[in-house]
Amino acid sequence: MIEINNLSFHYKNNVGIFDNISAALSAGHIYGLLGLNGVGKTTFLKLICGLLFPKTGTVETNGFMPSKREVTFLSDVYFVTDEVDLPPWTISNFLDTYSPLYRKFDQSYFDSILAAFQVDRREKIKSLSYGQRKKVNIAFALATNTSLLLMDEPTNGLDIPSKTQFRKLMARHISSEKTVIISTHQIRDIHNLIDHLLILQEQRLVLDESLYELSRKIKFQPGTYPNALYSEAGLNGNNNILPNTDDEASSFDIELFFNAISRQPDLLKKFTNINFQNHE
């Protein structure tokens, strides 16, 4: 469980990143963290795991204050960063050195993931490509079985088969005790995994809503709809966001939805009229 209360943060140049954000993220979900470049997605993840400290407000993760970086807390958190930062050793050395630090580490799970990614654990990490190093990091992250897993652009650098493998692994990985937060621009790679959206915009968390709740309020349909909340020209005509007044099921197009929020910031107010939750 992650409790964020009145969080504000800025870097040394006093340029504000977050202004009075509050949220409660619970276990058993894969959160998709979206936002434009520079809005603070990575900063948000760093505040949750304690790499950065709130200027005002509090962050509490699994009952711990992340900024204290207590070892009990750290052994139950793993952060897969966009830049792969692994030591230049063999994968076996890396595994043997660091796996004892995570009490729930599953070595056979690690080996099976590595095999699925087609990476040999006898290889030296420094001789691997960026994508292969990413696979090693993801394999290690999943094998730690931490209750909080943070991922920043996890599919960056993965080849197409590996992205498919990644989706399968993540779908099997999540459980009622685990929280996964994935920050990404490549939403198409993981849109079927996410069940809860977090959207950052202009120093605020403008959206914190499950896809289920969103799907009850809006639907996505191609065609021409003059009363659409939002329309975007696609390859096969317009793609539209419409109010879901008739409780119709439709495939939730996260990318279209995010574009709508980004291009028309006042759209959330329109959503409010259909009893939509936000954090403004």
């Binding site: 760093k46 795991c49 304690g50 790499l51 970086r69 070892v71 750290l74 052994s75 958190v77 793993y78 952060f79 960063t81 930062d85 692994l86 660091y98 630090l101 995570y102």
Partner: peptide
């Protein structure tokens, strides 16, 4: 500078 090193469960 390293996120991984600072999040490794080893106390300061």
């Amino acid at each position: 500078k390293s996120e991984r090193t600072n999040l490794t469960p080893i106390t300061r």
